[in-house]
Write a protein that binds this DNA or RNA. Sequence first.
DNA 1: ATAGGGTTAG
Length: 736
Amino acid sequence: MVFSTTSSHSNILHILPTSDHHPPYDLLQHHPSLLLLSKCKSIQTLKQIHSHIIKTGLHNTPFAQSKLIHFSAVSPFRDLSYALSVFESVDQPNQIMWNTIIRGHSLSPSPISSLQVYDRMLKSGVEPNSYTFPFLFKSCAKARASREGKQVHAHVLKLGFVSHAHIHTSLITMYAQIGELDNARMVFDSNTLRDVVSFTALISGYFSERYVDDARQLFDEIPVKDVVSWNAMIAGYVQSGLFEEAISCFSEMQKANVTPNQSTLVTLLSACAHSGSLELGKWVSSWIKEHGLSSDLQLTIALVDMYSKCGEIDTARELFDGIIEKNVISWNVMIGGYSHMSLYKEALALFQLMLRSNIKPSEVTFLAILPACAHLGALDLGKWIHAYIYKNFKNISNISLWTSLIDMYAKCGCIEVAAQVFRSMRYRNSASWNAMISGLAMHGHAEKALELFSEMTNEGLQPDDITFVGILSACTQAGLVDVGHQYFKSMIQDYEIKPKLQHYGCMIDLLARAGMFEEAKNLMKNMEMEPDRAIWGSLLNACKVHGHIEFGEYVADRLFELEPENPGAYVLVSNMYARAGRWDDVAKIRTSLNDRGMKKVPGCTSIEIDSFVHEFLVGDKFHPQSKNIYRMLDEVDKLLEASGFVPDTSEVLYDMDEEWKEGALSQHSEKLAIAFGLISTKPGTTLRIVKNLRVCGNCHSATKLISKIYNREIIARDRNRFHHFKDGVCSCNDYW
DNA sequence: ATAGGGTTAG
């Protein structure tokens, strides 16, 4: 079918001589087969055209040969082994064919082999030209082959090619990319040939080695700056995280009357997205409209990213919906935008829509959606993704992808599967270790987390501040005061990591929960930053547990100062008074809450049944199965009562009066989710629930009993950690 | 009929 137009011409060309006398150039250029070659878009069509070329006898012409080699060696659909087979069939390849094959190798997974081709080229008596060396330097740069690069450099000097602009610049680029900035600079200085291009090459090198000031200095020396050099500056600043500088560089560029191009805008939008600069983002957006670039896909996607990261998720969605031909990247950006804004359900919904639209997800899709699965506890979907990755990306060693899976499994309550994924990884980075260590910590497996820490350091990996957050929280969950202290010291002394607020938070929590209030206070005095609400909150919680009312009141005042509008602090204090039986104070707190019109964050528990995440609030009656759920709840309460369960009323009073009247205790969101789980799954199935707040003491006791009465394993994630309920006991040993 | 600099939209 592809050749239907060629048959009428083939008669004419048959009269052309084929071997010794090549047909004239202009005739060949317009030969249908060779014209087709230029339009070819896949290796399959290329092969078909090739066989057609052989039939017409054109395969012996250097023109056809170099065209074939070109398309099979360096085009986007290249197939180097095919190119080599064509190349080997040529008797005496010319300079262009050799160069093309060398370039083909530079684009291949083993670019260094282009040097062997170069060797063969020289031995066959074909001279290199100014085209040859840039390809070779690109290969050396890609292979980080410093020694080989220098050998070729010596060749260039010997053959007198140094002053060729292309060779000069590619040499600078090579040294810059290998990280030998001094050599790059030497090449740059060794020549009077200093055009914008070579300047820009060196500037990018400086940026990649974080020599921002050198880059700027060099940039100021460029006599006539062009768009690319400005873009390199802006992109360099963005890469270095210097968004302010990137933005001011852009205004300089405009003062210099250089018109931005698409890359400028994309880079700028990325800077806005990372720094949250909505104002500039909007400005770029209107610039794009004014210049009629609104239909540009890349720009639109960059805008979607910018708007979603700057908090205007609805604007982002409108733009996304307006894209007529959505590609994977557009979906990824929008899904990632939702995840980034903690709109996990929306992320999940969009992902489902993507699948229904028959868009094949990419690795990045999963990097965007897995955190959403992790937060929602959407294990079924997470498992599906795992299977999909295993099938489609097994050979891609994307460490982040496997690390995201570890995190997802851990946060969905499957710590064993998380460990399996971790063990099956061929390569791990410190993020992978961190994910596993904090996963174990969340599940209260302190010993295993500590074991993993030594394994990590034994393998020569440097633990970072995140590793220690995992380790310290493992100690906190398990109440390992001394061990925690040792690691805290070791972090500072052996690993020279300055403790951050989070580390202090873990330690203060650890000490206070163990009743060591003096030590906790001392640590707070000695830290160089102000305690945040998490620290005061954990102190207040410890005061509640240990009945330290006086200190608790002091702590509560600090919390009120810090966040006067946060009802959470009032709830905690109310809890403390309730625990101590001081009901008058409880009432006072409640009145002041009501007077201020504050409502506590509603407790919300989700459970995934058949790949669908169901959410429940306290006393929720919106679920379609509500009647059945409440019938089950009644049964549960009766059985609980029958086995001697007495509700602990001290913890219920932090809820509003109305809820109390309705029996808020038995209608806590976690109990609704459990009741729904019991009626929606087969006997014996493990129930996994996720709660947005800490589980209350009453529900904790109730759930322990339910696990025994109904013979179910119940894995519950609360704000802080996991609780595995089984046979009437919880993995946290009632310490949380 | 082949080349040099920046990015890449995640």
